[in-house]
Amino acid sequence: MEALDFGKYNLYIWASYGLTFLVLAWNLVIPWFAKKKLIKSIKRRNYLNNNGSNDTI
């Protein structure tokens, strides 16, 4: 992989690209988990409302 060897700037370049990857990944993972969690809680509440006791709101 000679083409990807940037000599004395290796650390700077790969740190920048690595950080970019992390920031983009964060922007996908956070909303993905938030949606999963929300859907689970809505489904649970709907289930309780349909099949459960009267003391659920």
């Binding site: 083409a3 990807l4 940037f6 000599g7 700037y9 700077y12 370049i13 920048s16 690209y17």
Partner: peptide, 21 residues
């Protein structure tokens, strides 16, 4: 950005940060 683009005459390889910055 990392392979096709040539080395910069002034900044060397370091300029490649431009493609994300």
């Amino acid at each position: 950005g990392l392979i096709l683009a040539p080395t910069d005459y002034e900044q060397g390889e370091a300029y490649r940060i431009i493609f994300v910055h």
